[in-house]
Amino acid sequence: MSELSKLQASCLFEIEDCDNLKKLEMLRSAIFGKDGRLSGAMKELRNLSDEQKRRHGSEVNELKSLLIERLDEKFRKLEIEELDRKLASEAMDVSMPPRPERFGKLHPLTIVEEEVSDILSSYGFFFADGPDIEEEYFNFTALNMPDHHPARTMHDTFYIHNLANENGRKLLRTHTSPVQIHAMLAHGAPCRFFSIGRVYRSDYDATHTPMFNQIEGLMIDERVGFPHLKWIISDFLRKFFEVKNLRIRFRPSFFPFTEPSAEVDMNYEIKNGRMAFGVGEKWLEVCGCGVVHPNVLKSGNVDNDKYQGVAFGFGLERLTSLKYGIPDLRGYFEADEAWLNVFGFSHYAR
């Protein structure tokens, strides 16, 4: 065995045997360094004849390439092993719970108000607003409920202490219909408006709270009548309840501010203890509506010969309860965390 073969065998063995990067680095120096083993072999070349130099030189160079290649390979292998060991040592218990985040809940009325606004605004209805503290005139008289009208006693009204002006006493509005008058006076005809807001009635039992929310809609045009009312309400209910085949029934009723007036029912049945809409033969009342009474148009300064109007109202809590299965009206205003956790919505809910 020549010296060179011995050198090759020992170097390859040591490279193979090396088990960490530091040692491998040292081994590289021991082989290729200034006084390294391979350098020794290179130096010996100087003492040889040209013929021997050529033959032996190419052998040395072959050996050099081989060792470089093996070393690099070993480096790569050890690096991977080293990284694997390091990563293994960094182990975490990923089964641990994450950092807690706390989000609040949105009240269901907020979500439903948005749903309702989206649908009504798609019909070209603009949002209108009115004050919670109204004047007798706007709440009653302008809406065709003159003094001592029996319907006035049906609205158990909260009055404000010691406040009155030429429009009568101040009171908490008993419905959102006064917004109709404000909107007509401010914008004239033709117009389309809706409003959502708080109303107040002096009534408190299992099914009544002294405050609740109403949705009001008004459309005035030269040619608008009962057929349009039918379309608006049917389309609205089908969109809101997301039931294409919802059956809708209009039945005659009475409101002082509309003539003719109607109440609207939709069909349902009880399935597994829950209400299912658009199926079954039972009827559920959801809306009051009608063709605007000419006296109301007059109050709004609208020419009742030229224009006609339709108006409608829904209970916001009622729509909410029906759509989301909320059983008790009182829960809405009790600020109960448990209630909110069940019926509230997350802040990114649409």
Binding site: G104, Y200, T209, M211, F333
Partner: peptide
């Protein structure tokens, strides 16, 4: 309102009186 809910507050509705 959504912003405040994202900051950990829950929305309530209470009487006006």
């Amino acid at each position: 309102k959504r912003l405040l809910a994202s900051r950990g507050l829950s929305e309530v509705v209470t009487y006006s009186f």
